[in-house]
Simulated scan of single mutants.
Amino acid sequence: MIKYENANVTYTMDLNNVKKYIHLQATGFFTEEDGKSFINDYNKIVKTFSTNDYKLIIDASELKASTPQVADILEVLLRRYIEVPFKQRYLVSKSITTKSQFRRLGSQIPGWDVEYVDDAKSLL
């Protein structure tokens, strides 16, 4: 598991090899520094297992909408979510604003294939 905490931001990356999922959970209002750290940690962890058999669960249920500068970094991350071959991809959030931001950015990414859900419990 990877844990990160900085000012008003936290994230975790939990790899479950038994149930075959990686659960990425982010909370708060990310800065550019936080976004770059998240991408670096994500790139490190996905190299440690065969992603084809795993679900990617992106839990943004407590993530705040990003500034335009952070949205640019988020777009890079969303491209990585698609480039890494996962069995299934889910975005968890009840926030219309967060879902809307992900949908808008995702619409610019070829192959954007993410299912939007309100709760992660059934996926874990």
Results as ranks from 00 to 15, higher is better:
F49Y: 04
Y21E: 03
V46D: 03
H23P: 02
L15Y: 06
K20I: 07
D53L: 05
F49T: 06
T51A: 06
Y42E: 00
I58C: 12
Y54A: 02
K36H: 05
G28P: 03
Q25H: 15
N17L: 12
I58W: 11
S50I: 15
N52V: 11
D14A: 07
I57K: 02
L56I: 12
Y42W: 10
E32I: 14
G35Q: 03
L24H: 11
F29C: 06
N43L: 12
T31C: 03
D41V: 02
I22E: 04
D53I: 08
D53E: 12
L15P: 07
K19F: 07
K44L: 07
A60D: 10
I45R: 09
I39V: 02
G28L: 04
T27G: 10
A26L: 10
L56Q: 13
Q25W: 13
E32M: 10
A60I: 07
H23A: 03
A26Q: 11
V18H: 11
F38T: 01
D53R: 03
L15T: 08
M13Q: 10
D34T: 05
K47P: 05
L15N: 07
A26K: 08
F38V: 00
E33N: 08
K44D: 13
K36W: 03
F38N: 03
E32V: 15
M13V: 06
Y21H: 10
T27C: 09
Y21W: 07
D34P: 02
T31E: 01
I57P: 03
I45L: 12
K44R: 13
F30Y: 09
I45H: 07
T27D: 13
Y42G: 00
A26H: 08
H23G: 04
K55M: 10
G35C: 04
G35D: 01
N17G: 09
K47N: 15
K19G: 05
F29H: 11
F38A: 03
F30N: 00
F38P: 00
A26Y: 09
F38Y: 14
N17V: 09
T31L: 04
K20N: 06
I39Y: 01
L56T: 14
N16S: 11
I45M: 13
D59K: 13
L24M: 11
Y21G: 02
K20T: 10
T51P: 02
Y42A: 00
K20M: 08
L24E: 09
T31F: 05
G28Q: 08
E32H: 08
E33Y: 12
I22F: 05
G35K: 02
K19D: 11
I57L: 05
T31A: 05
D59G: 12
E33I: 11
N43W: 00
K44F: 00
D14E: 12
D34K: 06
L56S: 12
Y54L: 01
I22G: 03
H23S: 02
D59A: 13
I22N: 03
I22H: 04
V18E: 14
D59S: 13
L56A: 12
L56V: 14
L15R: 08
Y54I: 05
N17K: 14
N16H: 10
K44W: 00
Q25E: 15
S37G: 10
F30C: 00
K20P: 04
T31M: 02
N52S: 13
S50F: 15
V46N: 05
V46T: 11
E33K: 12
I39W: 01
F30H: 01
